[in-house]
Simulated scan of single mutants.
Amino acid sequence: MMLATTQSGKAFKADYFRHFMRDAFNAAGLLEVTTHGLRYTSATILKELGLDWETIGDITGHKTAEMVRLYTEKRRRVARSIAMLDASELQNTTDESAKPVE
C-alpha cells in the first residue's frame, strides 16, 4: 500500500519525495522543518500512544527496535526528568505541610 504517490500515481522515490516535501515546507514558510524531523516526531508520538517498538519501526521504516528507541530517547529523557521534578516538588510540599506552625 502506498500512502503518497506522484501525480502520475506512481510511488515516490526517496530523493524525489525529499525534494517535493522541501518545496512544500518552503512554500508554507516552514523553513526549519525536514522530512527527517517528521520521522523523529512520528516515532515519538507513536511511542506516546503506546505502540510497541517493532510496530513503530514498521511504520517509520526503522530496521531495528534500537533505532526506534534512539529516535524517541530525547523525549523520554525529558519526560522522566519532569516526572522526577514533579515528585520532588510534591515531596517538598508534603514535608513543609507536616511542619508545625509556630
Rank of each mutant, 00 (worst) to 15 (best):
L30M: 12
L30W: 15
L30T: 04
L31S: 14
L31W: 08
L31P: 02
L31H: 14
E32R: 13
E32P: 06
E32C: 09
V33A: 14
V33C: 12
T34V: 06
T34W: 05
T35R: 08
T35S: 12
T35M: 09
T35Y: 01
T35A: 11
H36T: 06
H36V: 02
H36S: 10
G37I: 01
G37T: 03
G37D: 07
G37A: 05
G37H: 07
G37K: 04
L38R: 12
L38N: 14
L38S: 10
R39K: 11
R39T: 02
R39S: 04
Y40M: 11
Y40L: 10
T41R: 14
T41V: 01
S42C: 15
S42W: 07
S42H: 15
S42F: 08
A43H: 02
A43M: 04
A43N: 02
T44D: 05
T44W: 03
T44A: 09
I45M: 13
I45N: 14
I45A: 13
L46V: 03
L46D: 08
K47D: 06
K47V: 03
K47E: 11
K47P: 00
E48P: 00
E48H: 12
L49Q: 15
L49Y: 11
L49A: 13
G50D: 09
G50V: 02
G50S: 06
G50K: 03
L51D: 11
L51E: 14
L51C: 06
L51V: 00
L51Q: 11
D52T: 03
D52Y: 11
D52R: 12
W53R: 12
E54G: 04
E54I: 04
T55P: 01
T55G: 04
T55E: 13
T55Y: 05
I56D: 06
I56M: 09
G57F: 00
G57Y: 03
G57N: 04
D58E: 15
D58T: 07
I59E: 09
I59A: 10
I59R: 12
I59T: 09
I59L: 13
I59G: 11
T60P: 07
T60C: 09
G61C: 03
G61D: 04
G61W: 00
G61R: 01
H62T: 01
H62C: 00
H62K: 00
K63I: 01
K63G: 09
K63D: 05
K63S: 14
K63P: 00
K63A: 12
T64R: 12
A65C: 10
A65R: 06
E66G: 08
E66A: 15
M67Q: 13
M67I: 08
M67E: 15
